[in-house]
């Protein structure tokens, strides 16, 4: 048994014992410390932390979740790593996203389902009242829920786009994948009134409340969901700092939630948005290109060195990180959440 000391972004120290036969994620869970994780199979990068001292054995993982450069810098995935000595780890997330009791599992009913641009669905759920949790939707903007496909054990993780609320409403934006089991359900069979099993909130992609820097957000497709949640929360809290959304899609017909972006422009002081279309039609007058390209142009034009929050496919994350670093944003001020087709 080895001692693991994990220090969070906000300086909290968590110590737990780890047996070499357990992943660090499981070892922490045995100590009732539920660290952020999503796929638990080395595929998403949600549980990435940095090893400062000690030896770990790392199982197989996706290079999109942990690049060779990240690994060379000491990063590991908690879901694939086992302790082979005492360990000193630093985490890029706050203590606030760590659970110290089991992740709640609840029932929620579909109250709305419909298209969100071409190839994506907006799904709205409402929690059923239960004696342990009531009906409140408590989460930190940026977090996700794990949904189980009715009648199966298939689960998928989707970020929440709304803000914590007392009505129990969960709003999700979901990209449809041609071969996806959940996609087939959402596109064809899902009906208002269906009950889904949901597990959450989970995830560590949340804003750093301790930072006073401007916040620039980069989103690809439905990766805008957690970012809309963060921005809506900033509007609710009256956060007047400079904030900017670079929201990109492939083609114009994929754009969605533009009404939310417009509403944010009115309700959030200091907010601006750049809608980006990679392959625009002739009638597109906005930015033509990827949101990472729009970010590069904005950084070049500005003396601001903002905190960068990026969510979308792995390639967008990589491009954004490269652009931000080249633009003078330090590595530890870039926060990302990758999502990959399941």
């Amino acid at each position: 048994m080895f001692k693991v000391n994990l220090v969070t972004r906000d300086g909290a120290s968590l110590v737990f014992d780890a047996d070499p036969s357990d992943t660090l994620l499981d070892a922490a869970a045995k100590a009732n410390i539920f660290l952020p994780a999503a796929c638990r199979e080395g595929g998403c990068g949600t549980c990435r932390v940095t090893r400062k001292a000690g030896v770990v054995a790392l199982g197989s993982y996706s290079r999109s979740a942990l690049t060779d450069a990240d690994r060379a810098a000491g990063d590991i995935l908690l879901c694939r790593a086992a302790a082979h000595s005492d360990l000193e780890l630093t985490a890029p997330f706050d203590k606030a996203v760590i659970g110290f009791s089991r992740i709640p599992e609840r029932r929620a009913r579909i109250t709305d389902v419909g298209p969100a641009g071409a190839g994506a669905v907006r799904l709205v759920l409402r929690y059923e009242d239960d004696p342990t949790h009531g009906r409140a939707a408590e989460f930190i903007p940026g977090q996700f829920m794990e949904l189980t496909l009715p009648g199966t054990s298939i689960t998928r993780a989707y970020s929440l786009a709304n803000t914590p609320n007392w009505e129990g409403t969960l709003e999700l934006s979901i990209r449809l994948h041609p071969q996806g089991a959940f996609s087939a359900y959402l596109a064809g069979r899902a009906e208002i009134g269906d009950v889904l099993h949901v597990k959450g909130p989970q995830g560590s992609f949340i804003v750093d409340d301790g930072s006073q820097a401007p916040r620039w957000f980069v989103a690809g497709g439905t990766g805008v969901a957690p970012i809309l949640s963060m921005l809506r929360q900033m509007a609710e809290l009256g956060d007047a700092r400079e904030s900017h959304l670079f929201f990109g899609v492939n083609t114009q017909d994929e754009l969605f939630a533009t009404d939310v972006v417009e509403e944010l422009s009115k309700s959030l002081p200091g907010f601006g948005a750049t809608l980006c279309v990679w392959r625009p039609g002739p009638d597109w007058s906005g930015f033509a290109g990827t949101p990472a390209e729009a970010l590069a142009a904005a950084l070049a034009d500005s003396s601001t060195r903002p905190d960068i929050y990026v969510c979308g496919p792995p390639k967008l994350i990589e491009a954004t990180e490269a652009v931000a670093l080249a633009g003078g944003v330090p590595h530890d001020r870039i926060f990302s959440e990758r999502f990959s087709p399941a």
Partner: peptide, 26 residues
């Protein structure tokens, strides 16, 4: 506290909503 909802207008109706939505003592 940063990131925590602040009520500065004396309107605590949201607190009543929250109480109704949360489980209370069993």
């Amino acid at each position: 506290w940063p990131g925590i909802r602040h009520i500065d207008n004396g309107d605590f109706s949201i607190v009543a909503q929250a109480a109704a939505a949360l489980p209370g003592f069993a």
